[in-house]
């Protein structure tokens, strides 16, 4: 398979430097508002600072992929004597918790690294260098890009099965 170069975007999180201000949540929600910067609402932010003040936990976590089902088990990390929340490091938008769901629609939120911007807004806004943006290039196998249409068909197949979808397509073709 042919090799291509892929840009990997990364945000390094130095949680020890976090002063817990939650400015990242504010700027994220403002940036992703329509029109841009028209509303502020940390509940819509794609980054949240998981906080347990007296336990010395301030942990910025970015919204990751949506998953329809929760894991079969849960995890709890204890690091340096600090017990983090159940699934605390997980970025998934999952039925087991309210994190990263739009408060009105319940739709999943996902960090898009502020696509189109040179540096994600939360990184720019964090004046304590908790969030550091890094880019690197990787050689990867060339993949066929899945189009929106293909993704839609895949999702229909996932839900209804290949046969049903094929029947449906056949019927539509006949109708035309």
């Amino acid at each position: 398979m042919a090799k291509v170069t892929k840009k990997v975007k990364r945000i390094k999180i130095d949680a020890d430097k976090c002063n817990g201000c939650r400015g990242c949540e504010i700027i994220c929600s403002a940036y992703h508002a329509t029109p841009r910067y028209s509303t502020i609402n940390p509940a819509r932010s794609r980054i949240r600072v998981i906080t347990n003040r007296l336990e010395d936990i301030w942990l910025p976590v970015f919204a990751g992929e949506y998953t329809a089902a929760e894991c079969l088990g849960r995890d709890v990390y204890v690091i340096d004597g600090k017990e983090y929340d159940e699934c605390g490091f997980c970025r998934a938008v999952c039925p087991s918790r309210d994190l990263f769901k739009d408060p009105d629609s319940g739709l999943p939120l996902k960090c898009d690294m502020c696509e189109g911007e040179e540096i994600p807004q939360c990184v720019q806004w964090c004046l304590n260098d908790v969030l550091v943006y890094e880019e690197r290039e990787e050689e990867v196998d060339e993949e066929f890009e899945i189009t929106m249409a293909e993704a839609g068909v895949d999702s229909l197949i996932n839900q209804y099965g290949l046969d049903k979808v094929a029947d449906m397509v056949a019927r539509r073709r006949k109708d035309r």
Partner: peptide, 10 residues
């Protein structure tokens, strides 16, 4: 979890 609005955000 409600929005707060800015009149001229940009």
């Amino acid at each position: 979890s409600k929005d707060v609005y800015l009149a001229r955000g940009a």
